[in-house]
Write a protein that binds this DNA or RNA. Structure first.
Lengths: 202, 202
DNA sequence: CGCACTCATTTTACTGGTAAAACATGCGTT
DNA sequence: AACGCATGTTTTACCAGTAAAATGAGTGCG
C-alpha cells in the first residue's frame, strides 16, 4: 500500500507537473475540503487522470495513514539510534517497563508483534548490554523469566519521556480538538480492524 | 514507537488483567470519549498505573496510528503474496502505473521511499518476470528508463481495484463523515510532518 | 584535450528478519 | 513409569535491506 497510496516522497514536483497540466488542480478540487496540499492528494490526482474509473477513495485515508506513520517512525528513530538502540530493541524494553513484571520471551514476542526468533536475538543483545536480566523459571524449566535491570529501567525512564515530548511537539500543529477527534476515530477503526482481522483470516 | 505506543498485540488479556485490578477501568475512564476498548487504551492504562507522571497523551494518537497501519498492512499483504508479489515490488509497479511514463531507478527509489540498492534488486526480479522493461536512455547512458510491460500493466489494473475494494471494506465500519474527517485531519498532520521533517533535520 | 568532479546505478559485505527444524521440557494417558 | 504429544525457546539456513565502495558516464575548467 505504500506507493499505491502515496507512501512515496522525494522529488514530488516532477510527477504532478510533468505533462499533468491541470492534474493537480483537478485533484485538489475533487477532494473537497479534505486537505489539498499533501502528497497523497497529488497521488489521487494522478490516478484520476490515468484511471478515473478506479475508486481511489480509500487511499485518502489509508494512504495518509501510511505516510504519516512512515514519517513519524523515521523521525522517532533518530534519538534511539543515538543511544545505540534499534526501535525493536526499544520496544522490548518499553514493554517490560510498562508491564512491570517478569515476562517470558514468548509473551514479549506476542506483545511486540515479533517472531520468537527475532526476540531471541534481541534479548541476547540486550542481555549482553546489561539492560535485561534472565532467570530460568522454577516451575517450568523451558521458560525464561526476563526483567529489566536497574540500568535498563533507568534508560527507559530517561528515554521515553523524551520520546513522548518529541511526539507531542510533532502533533502540536493540530488543535486539541483535532487530536482528540483523531484519536477517537482511530480508536474506533482499531476496534473494527482488530475484530475483522483477528476474527477471520486476514 | 511500536510497543511503546501499543503496536503490540497477542495475548492482550494478560497484561490488563494480571495484577492490574482496576487498571483497565481507570484507563478507559480517564481517556474520555476517545475509544475505550482498543489495545492502546489498555497500554495507556498500564502506563498510568506504572508511571502516572509520564504524559502519555501523544500515544493516544501515535500509538493508534501505528497499530492501525500495522494491521492494515498485514491485511493487505495477503492478496499480493497470492500473486507472488511482495509489497515493495507492488509499490514499484503501482508507481510506474500511476506516473504513467518512463521512470529511472532513482526516481522510483525516491518515490517509493526506498534505497537505490533495494530498487536495483526489485527491478531485476520484476524484469525477469517480464513485468517491467528497461531501456538505456539515449541522452544519458548512465540512466535506465523503465516502463511497465503490457503484462505488468494488466497485473496492476487487475490487482489494484481488488486492493481498493478490500480497503473500502475494511473502512466500511466508519461512517462517511468519520472517513472524511479522518482524511482531513490526517492530511493536515501530513503537511505538518512533511514540513517539519523535510525542512529541518529529522 | 585531459583531469577533476559529480552523478546514476550497481555491486559488495554485512545485518537483521523469518520459517522451519531442532531441542528441551512438561503433561496426560495408560 | 513410560510413551507420545504439546509447548517454549533456540538454532539453522536463507532472504531482503542497507551503507559504502565500485563502476561507468556526463560536465566543466584550465
Amino acid at each position: 500500500m505504500a506507493a499505491e497510496d502515496g507512501r512515496d516522497a522525494g522529488d514530488a514536483r516532477h510527477g504532478a507537473g510533468e505533462g499533468a497540466g491541470d492534474g493537480a488542480r483537478d485533484g485538489a478540487g475533487a477532494e473537497a475540503g479534505a486537505g489539498a496540499g499533501d502528497i497523497v492528494a497529488r497521488v489521487l490526482a494522478q490516478w484520476r487522470r490515468v484511471r478515473p474509473d478506479f475508486d481511489t477513495a480509500p487511499m485518502a485515508v489509508v494512504g495518509r495513514l501510511n505516510r504519516c506513520v512512515a514519517l513519524l517512525q523515521q523521525a522517532e528513530e533518530a534519538p534511539l539510534v543515538r543511544e545505540g538502540l534499534t526501535r525493536p530493541e526499544f520496544d522490548v524494553l518499553v514493554t517490560l517497563r510498562r508491564e512491570d513484571r517478569e515476562m517470558t520471551p514468548g509473551q514479549i514476542a506476542r506483545e511486540t508483534f515479533a517472531s520468537g526468533a527475532a526476540v531471541t536475538k534481541r534479548l541476547r543483545l540486550l542481555e549482553e548490554r546489561g539492560l535485561v536480566a534472565r532467570r530460568t523459571s522454577a516451575r517450568d524449566r523451558r521458560v525464561s523469566e526476563l526483567s529489566l535491570t536497574a540500568g535498563g529501567r533507568e534508560l527507559i525512564d530517561r528515554l521515553l519521556p523524551a520520546q513522548l515530548a518529541y511526539e507531542a511537539e510533532l502533533l502540536s500543529g493540530l488543535t486539541d480538538a483535532q487530536r482528540s477527534e483523531l484519536s477517537a476515530i482511530l480508536s474506533e477503526l482499531l476496534v473494527l480492524l482488530e475484530g475483522r482481522l483477528g476474527g477471520l483470516r486476514g
